[in-house]
Design a protein around this nucleic acid. Structure first.
Lengths: 204, 204, 204, 204
DNA sequence: GATGAATGAGATTTCATTCAT
DNA sequence: CATGAATGAAATCTCATTCAT
């Protein structure tokens, strides 16, 4: 389900697993991390899910944290790319809306990881990924927020990003087609950005 | 810092403590839970912070979870009251804005707890408070959301609540006076509710 | 059920409890000890069953062990009396059969205690009651066993006592009227004593 | 002392131990369980006796109870075999005496376990082995007892089994050669079975 | 490319017991 | 005649990690 890359043939034989153990560890770990939280997920559990020993995990990764780091680095690369792209664009409304649109896509493509980051902030705070994630969010904000905007508009920009995040999880219990919901979320975020950009109040 | 009630004088003598141990446990526990997360905070740590033994904690609370539950129940009672109040009001824009205003106040009064809940969703999911919190959020939504509203407006309502939450934590690194920031957040949330209530698009 | 003495009036008021707390502790403790074992029964449990605090138990008894000792001493006095009586009788078959009969009665009158002793030998071994019980059993044997009897007959005497014990517990699952079963057990034990007394084999 | 299998040479080197840790845990645990009781024996004690850490025990067994279960299952297999054998024999006196004889041998071969079961009935009642042991005793009785026998004779059959058990422990303080005592016990049990089989009284 | 065996640290929880009031 | 508050010791169990093979 969280398998991000499908290597090998789908013939169900155990033998096909050859050299993809690293990937499988990442997949299973992310699923479990997202489901149960980082602290609550033990290496024993991951190993058992994969039908290998704990020691095997240590062959592929130096520590538990490194498993998470490797997943995180793989999956958040697109944010880095987006920031890089954003920096080279003019600070127009168009650009900002495109950023929101692209970020929405990134989120949708790595839902389990972002869900995990959202729900495990405390656990992750003292891990490397915690710091890194914060930096990336900061980077996102930097390419969107107009430093001259007043406080209320800055909140709007932030709220836009947050709405995208919230959309992934808190809207799960709302009925409706997922893709349709995603578009609705995107629209609200987009509106917020527009309002922020235009300034909803007369500036002095 | 998270001490909600300050009994006795701060003279540092050990003997003065009489009967307020329960309260002190809750205070210290909340601070630590919020700072380090639920799983990462051990009873040893709480006990040492208070200069009592672990067994003393068990005199006052049956389990670690019960410490959290007692804090949660104490501090989220106002949400229950708000929901109760909201149910008896007409579903006007006025009402909804008042709900947002009141909720913002509740949040401000119990920041550490809400920060904790936000940042420990995974850890808390299988605890009683996880379920309870979800129900309360649901209750809040129910008194705000117009079931006839289209999807986009429903997202706006949800986003308003979320913006309030986000305001507490993600805006911490933004410069500025806290009270001023709170007002800005409140304004954005209020706007979202207004837009949702009026309908931003022509309904069929 | 295990209440051995019924003090006060049976009016159900809580006030009637006056000065009989000691007795009530013994009753409840014996029930719990018999049901769950000595180690598994905590003072908390006993206290909660009586709706008093643990500290109250310590007003009446110095230690957990002393609760057991007091019960034991009260209820095994009859064995002491029996041994005393036995010592003064001639070593006839009549006497031995009477001992078996009387012992059977003693057992029936304090079933929970004897069940407890039977099922908690390991736990009780290092307690004072363990040693004391062993001594009493030894005393019983001494007034029954003919030291001149051969080994097989000595086993018969021992088996007679054991049959009485076993009868109380291991026959519980056998269908039939309890009093009738007790008589059957008594008869087998009696037979064993008779065979032992008469010598089942030609002595040299 | 309770070591059931003696692998390797007794040269005292630590390195020689390879792969027999599981067995050694079982041996030491049984000795301690039998000596001090199940509850009173801590995993720390077992671990220290073996000069390994507590965690090592958990590598080999999932819980404390599982250590006991594994010992029990290993050592009571012969009872299962005996019951199986008994079911296929004719219900003659010969058969019953053979059962008594074989059971006596089984008992002698696993004295510590049976002593443990006898002396820890309370502690063991809520463990899996408690139930299982009860079932096996029931099975034994079923292949011996003639359901048409009157109550007194049923008691005799039960008493025979019990005499065998008692023989192991309560006769320990009696002087005499162990093997000789065992034969004496066996004779009494055998007699009881014979009397039960022939009927000691005229049946209606 | 992995396993089997183990460890050290630490977690939550329970218990008998104490003592000032 | 009892309670409220606490303690010190210990129990069972879990975890990330290591290392020889």
């Amino acid at each position: 389900m969280a398998s991000r890359r499908m290597g090998g043939t789908m013939d169900g034989t155990k033998q096909r697993r050859r050299g993809d153990t690293r990937q499988r560890i990442q997949d299973v770990a992310l699923d479990l991390f997202a489901e149960q939280g980082y602290e609550k997920t033990s290496l024993r559990e991951i190993a058992e899910s994969l039908d290998v020993t704990k020691a095997a995990l240590y062959y592929h990764f130096k520590t538990k944290e490194e498993i998470l780091v490797s997943i995180f680095d793989d999956l958040t690369q697109p944010i880095l790319d987006l920031i890089e792209w954003g920096r080279q664009q003019p600070h127009t409304l168009e650009t900002k809306q495109e950023i929101v649109r692209r970020y929405s896509g990134i989120l949708a493509n790595a839902t389990p990881l972002f869900r995990f980051m959202q729900e495990n902030q405390a656990a992750v705070r003292e891990l490397r990924v915690g710091e890194t994630f914060k930096e990336r969010m900061q980077g996102l904000r930097d390419i969107m927020i107009d430093p001259a905007a007043d406080l209320v508009d800055q909140v709007r920009y932030t709220s836009a990003i947050f709405t995208l995040h919230a959309g992934m999880f808190f809207l799960q219990d709302l009925a409706g087609d997922p893709e349709e919901k995603r578009r609705a979320v995107l629209e609200v975020a987009s509106d917020l950005v527009t309002q922020a950009h235009e300034g909803t109040r007369k500036k002095p």
